[in-house]
């Protein structure tokens, strides 16, 4: 970060300034003139928080995608199907057991197992054939989507959050000040805050795993040069299996999360596949911090766009992607290779 700052002082200044303005907008109570030009502060805050939460969900989906891509050069276009599968399984399990928390480990293990089968039976057979892998995963996603449509039908499902997470919680952020001088604090659904917190914890956990453990060292080495890693005696196929399982499992968990605060229906798989594609393209292929930043940008732009320019909110996302591609094809944090 310090290197970036010394190399691009102007950009650093602009980014820091933008962040400062954003934070100031969030924490300061808005004066009536500001409310006139920018609209109600509550709406703005909701858009920001919605965007950050959506970004957290996108991060969960995309980090697995980018990890798998970074290490194995596999483009798993069936990633969205894994997300939807995880969501449906989470719905079934939470209906069966009645517990929300227990679905997470179960779904993680099941979807990770699916991922292991995928890696072992599909990707390993066509190692190095990018195009064929991509096509096979497209075929798989078509088949999986139809199988899921067959079993779960076309209606949408919502996974219910447990009681202790339902309802709003009050955040120490001023939403507005009434004429009487009474301060109104922002109230926001507790389950979304929990999701946000969980995504941050998972992100930090992944960073620690990658940067502080032996396995993480192997993975990072594999991202840089897998042949050399294999040549130095590491059983790279096991690492591939582990990473693929982890990425798939994350997609499954993200399915539960998405099913809790949005809904699950056919078509969500392509939606999240596209979202993770865009996030990963914006953030940079194979970079976890890149996925985090990309997810945040996309989530925020989607929600802010939805509030302030509802017609073209979806287009903003792709506009950002096109801009990034045009000026920095490897993504914001991607390394040019």
């Amino acid at each position: 970060m310090a290197r970036f700052a010394s190399r691009h002082p102007v950009w650093t200044f602009i980014i820091v300034l933008g962040l400062a303005v954003l934070l100031w907008l969030i924490f300061t109570p808005w004066s009536p003139q500001m409310e006139e030009t920018l609209g109600r502060k509550r709406i703005f805050l909701n858009a920001i928080f919605g965007g950050v939460t959506l970004g957290a969900l996108y991060f969960l989906v995309a980090s697995g995608f980018t990890l798998i891509f970074g290490l194995m050069r596999n483009v798993n276009l069936a990633h969205g199907s894994l997300y939807l599968l995880g969501g449906y399984l989470g719905f079934e399990i939470s209906e069966f057991t009645g517990s929300w928390l227990i679905t997470f480990p179960i779904v993680f293990i099941i979807v990770a197992a699916v991922g292991i089968v995928l890696q072992h039976q599909v990707f390993r057979r066509m190692d190095g054939e990018d195009l064929r892998q991509t096509m096979v995963t497209i075929g798989l996603s078509v088949v999986l989507a139809d199988l899921m449509l067959w079993y779960w039908g076309g209606q949408s499902y919502t996974i219910f959050a447990p009681d202790w997470l339902s309802g709003p919680m009050t955040l120490p952020i001023i939403s507005s000040i009434r004429d009487s001088g009474e301060i109104v604090y922002l109230r926001y659904p507790a389950v979304r805050m929990a999701i946000l917190l969980a995504a941050i914890v998972i992100g930090i956990g992944m960073w620690l795993l990658l940067n502080r453990t032996r396995l993480g060292m192997f993975v990072r080495a594999g991202v840089d040069d897998r042949e050399m890693l294999a040549a130095s005696g590491v059983r790279i196929q096991y690492i591939f299996l582990a990473v693929f399982a982890f990425g798939a499992g994350l997609a499954g968990i993200a399915g539960i999360v998405g099913g809790t605060f949005q809904s699950l229906s056919p078509g969500e798989d392509t939606r999240f596949l596209l979202a993770s594609l865009v996030v990963v393209i914006v953030g940079g292929m194979g970079s976890i911090p890149g996925a985090a930043i990309g997810a945040l940008i996309i989530g925020l732009s989607e929600q802010l766009g939805l509030v302030y320019a509802p017609t073209y909110s979806v287009v903003f996302t792709f506009l950002i992607m096109a801009l990034v591609l045009a000026f920095r094809p490897q993504g914001l944090l991607g390394s040019a290779r």
């Binding site: 979806v314 287009v315 992607m321």
Partner: peptide, 19 residues
């Protein structure tokens, strides 16, 4: 190049669809 082209064209195609 390669798979990136697939992803980027897929993303632009869906942008066209949504637009």
């Amino acid at each position: 190049e390669g798979i990136y082209t697939i992803m980027i064209t897929l993303a632009i195609a869906s942008a066209f669809f949504y637009f």
